[in-house]
Design a protein around this nucleic acid. Structure first.
Lengths: 153, 153
DNA sequence: ATACAACCTGAAGTTAACTTCAGGTCAAGG
DNA sequence: CCTTGACCTGAAGTTAACTTCAGGTTGTAT
């Protein structure tokens, strides 16, 4: 048996946030003791894990509530639940790919500033006489990356 | 020369959102034509790219505004800009790792429902006589995954 | 016995990131 | 010439996800 603060710790959120989640329908399974306090069981931890994963994956609270609702309904919603997961698996894959691209861009800009700092000025990356970044600079960086010459940076 | 709608298209947001970004200080570089309309240059596209990347990476608008502000200041802020990027590179790496973990969890749950659907009931995953998920089930899944027996699912 | 930390509720407040609105300017096509 | 669509501003409205507040109850350590 667990109390609300245990769950808050486990989910790495505040106790108030757990109550907020409950209010929004994420925890219809939670029981109360004789004086009205929330009591969570081991069985509930299965749901807590799911909720935490979905939250971190960026799924909105309302959608998670729908999913949990299906869980409470029983075996006739197995397919909806599967489809929900398959759909969000797709979305998450796409999002991770995008973040990988963003990460690659940040790294190139980091190299850009690293080298600019060494030169004392950003101008080394500009097209002759302008303040526009030379598109070849990015290619130069990609080449160095591919050649494994950027290990120390 | 580009107009606001071109930039909106390029960033994949609405024209109103671009104006909002400008208001929040993300585009101090933008010029105006004689009748007050925003005019973007090729030089500005460098910034647009940076802004879009940072937005997608989840960096708050205010922080991006700070970064852009440094860019306008000149070479004396090169170090701040480098540190900013290094810091967010770190954060993004952590976030991607977390999302990978979430993805792995979603996939295991997908398998859980896939097999439950085939059996017609979720009970196949429960500990004898309870409604608690058998922890060995996840291990079973991981084993199948490692053995490459899940290709078609 | 009593204090006090942890719990409760309903409701109001906050923040970020937009979005919508009201009202106005302007350049180009028919 | 005049209509129309793209642009402008300042300000108000919206939404999600919390957070804070006011006021109340209770189990446990001193």
């Amino acid at each position: 048996m667990y109390k609300i603060s245990d769950i808050a710790d486990k989910m790495d959120v505040s106790v108030d946030t757990v109550r907020y989640y409950d209010r929004e329908g994420l925890m219809p399974f939670v029981e109360r003791d004789k004086s009205g306090r929330r009591v969570f069981t081991d069985h509930d931890l299965n749901f807590i894990e799911v909720i935490q994963c979905m939250k971190q994956a960026g799924i909105p609270v309302k959608e998670i509530a729908t999913f949990i609702d299906w869980c409470m309904t029983g075996d006739e919603t197995l397919e909806q639940r599967y489809d929900f997961l398959a759909d969000h698996e797709q979305q998450l894959e796409t999002k991770i790919q995008q973040l990988e691209d963003n990460l690659a861009f940040l790294r190139w800009k980091k190299w850009y500033y690293q080298t600019a700092m060494e030169a004392g000025t950003e101008e080394i990356h500009f097209l002759e006489g302008t303040n526009v970044v030379d598109p070849n600079e990015r290619k130069r960086y990609e080449q160095l990356l591919a050649d494994g010459q950027l290990e120390s940076k």
